[in-house]
């Protein structure tokens, strides 16, 4: 058993940090898309129109009930057969965003359901159109209680990014594995990757809590 080699760790640090940028890019853009898309999925599912509500609900349940890995394979290896060719990074971001949009859709749904009926009645009595009603009255109230849940999904996305190595995306974990197979030293790169995720997750959790507190005092 070798002890942790600090010199080696320092030597591979730039390569790992380089790949870490990819990881962060995937997590942030994937989450950004998921948060917006999830809202529309939630609204679609709540629609009074069956032709919209039912397919949206089916899509959400389908994606939530199948593994991310399979979805990534479909996006990257199967869709090109149907004319949609994406780079590995694009396919990865799209796949992870779609997957998590379905989870955030359920979070939005819970938040929207938690807004009291009386608020909808006030909205009706004031004759507000649906767009203004959602944007100005309902969503601000729905969002506050679900912020922690949304924040947790950001952390989940971050921790799921290594799955993208299966479709050849070189994120931090893939880089660590490559370093390992080149040098036959896994202790340092894998430990450093673990620390990277730990630090980033804790940092994000702290940011989410700060945001919550700010919203709490903003009223």
């Amino acid at each position: 058993m070798n002890a942790f080699d600090w010199a080696f760790a320092l030597e591979i640090l730039p390569r790992l940090l380089d790949a870490a940028l990819t990881t962060i890019l995937i997590a942030v853009s994937g989450f950004g898309i998921a948060v917006v898309l999830g809202l529309f999925l939630a609204l679609g599912r709540r629609s009074r129109h069956r032709w919209l509500a039912w397919p949206t609900g089916a899509l959400v349940e389908f994606i939530r009930s199948t593994p991310l890995l399979i979805q990534l394979y479909v996006v990257f290896y199967v869709l090109p057969n149907y004319g949609l060719s994406l780079t590995a990074l694009q396919a990865g971001i799209l796949g992870i965003a779609l997957h998590y949009a379905c989870y955030t859709a359920e979070v939005y749904r819970a938040g929207l359901d938690a807004v009291p009926r009386a608020q909808w009645e006030a909205v009706t009595a004031l004759n507000l159109a649906p767009l203004a009603a959602y944007r100005d009255v309902i969503l601000p109230q729905a969002l506050r209680p679900i912020l922690p849940a949304l924040g947790n999904y950001l952390i989940s996305i971050l921790k799921d990014t290594p799955v993208l190595s299966a479709i050849t995306v070189v994120e931090i974990m893939q880089r660590a594995k490559n370093i390992g197979s080149e040098t036959f030293r896994y202790l340092e790169p894998i430990t450093m990757v673990g620390l990277f995720f730990l630090i980033l997750s804790l940092g994000l959790a702290w940011l989410v809590r700060r945001l919550e507190n700010r919203l709490e005092t903003a009223r």
């Binding site: 009595a125 507000l128 203004a132 100005d136």
Partner: peptide, 26 residues
């Protein structure tokens, strides 16, 4: 127009915003 038993004001808006929201939007 209607006034409710439980007021049903918008809790995240100030008094002024509560009263100006619908006249502006509607």
């Amino acid at each position: 127009g209607m006034v409710f038993q439980s007021f049903n004001l918008f809790p995240h808006m100030t008094v002024r915003q509560n009263v100006t929201e619908a006249p502006i939007r509607v």
